[in-house]
């Protein structure tokens, strides 16, 4: 069985500040990390390998050369192989062009039985790339997995949506996007680091290697145009309720009811 996990290198948003004038992220000096949900997807793949045995786990990313560091981290965590789709022609891609590029890379490293993606990335938060890859490949997709049971031929996935739980199964090959609730990612081990730097490495894939349609990649292949990004200014609108204990408590309850903040009995 061959599982491919897609990985995105993102700025650590805990450390990111926003340039108030341009509305964009100030990326300078901000450490790059593995997108947290992708780490959960990788953990899910490693757990399937531990359970089923004969499983190869590959990680795939699209990005600039420095995204190779994040793939090295995935190799240290236990992935068997890593590919980085890296070409100036891929630059400026929106989610559609990214998904197309990754889908073509997946065709290059085929046969692939199961594609696991983090549901969304902490920098863009679109949750579009996973589903779009599945559409590009024409394979079934199941989103927001909280539990995955894989076998040689199929995958069964449980997802939670508030009070509703959904259990779906699909024949392989399929793509599953994974949320944070699914597992607790392992720590990197010293042995894993030693082995990754001794025996493994990141293989580069250019636009030539994966035979892409030049009109569907990078900025050219991106129909999205971002008009403006901005951080909404949230002021604190305080309201003062005056009076004795009774007026005060009723006043608070009525305010909360009006704002729909009390549980319905």
């Amino acid at each position: 069985m061959h599982i491919v996990v897609t990985i995105k290198q993102v700025p650590d948003t805990n450390e990111v500040r926003i340039d108030k004038k341009t509305g964009t992220l100030i990326r300078e000096g901000v450490p790059a990390i593995m997108n947290p949900e992708d780490k959960h997807a990788l953990e899910a793949a490693l757990c399937i390998r531990e359970e089923l045995g004969d499983v190869k786990v590959t990680v795939l990313s699209m990005g600039p050369p420095q995204a190779g560091n994040t793939l090295m981290e995935a190799l240290c965590l236990g992935a068997d192989e890593a590919f980085l789709a890296c070409d100036k022609a891929f630059a400026g891609a929106d989610t559609l062009a990214t998904a197309y590029t990754l889908a073509m890379a997946l065709k290059k490293i085929a046969p692939v039985d199961l594609v696991l993606c983090g549901s969304q990335a902490i920098d863009g938060d679109t949750a579009q790339v996973g589903p779009q890859i599945a559409e590009c490949l024409g394979i079934p997709q199941i989103t927001y997995a909280e539990r995955i049971k894989a076998s040689e031929k199929s995958v069964e996935v449980e997802s939670g949506f508030g009070a509703v739980r959904r259990r779906v199964s699909a024949d392989l090959p399929a793509l599953v996007t994974v949320g944070k609730a699914i597992n607790r990612p392992r720590y990197k081990t010293m042995k894993g680091i030693a082995a990754a730097f001794r025996d493994k490495g990141v293989q580069l894939l250019t636009s030539q290697d994966i035979k892409v349609n030049p009109g569907r990649i990078g900025l050219t292949g991106s129909p999205t145009s971002v008009k403006k990004t901005f951080v909404p200014e949230l002021g604190r609108a305080g309201r003062i309720i005056d009076g004795g204990p009774e007026t005060l408590s009723l006043g608070i309850i009525h305010t909360l009811e009006a704002e729909n903040l009390l549980p319905k009995s």
Binding site: Y187, K188, I193, A196, F197
Partner: peptide, 10 residues
């Protein structure tokens, strides 16, 4: 080198 930085991060 990258290996030492990885050890530190881990």
């Amino acid at each position: 080198d990258e290996k030492h930085e990885m050890v530190r991060a881990a």
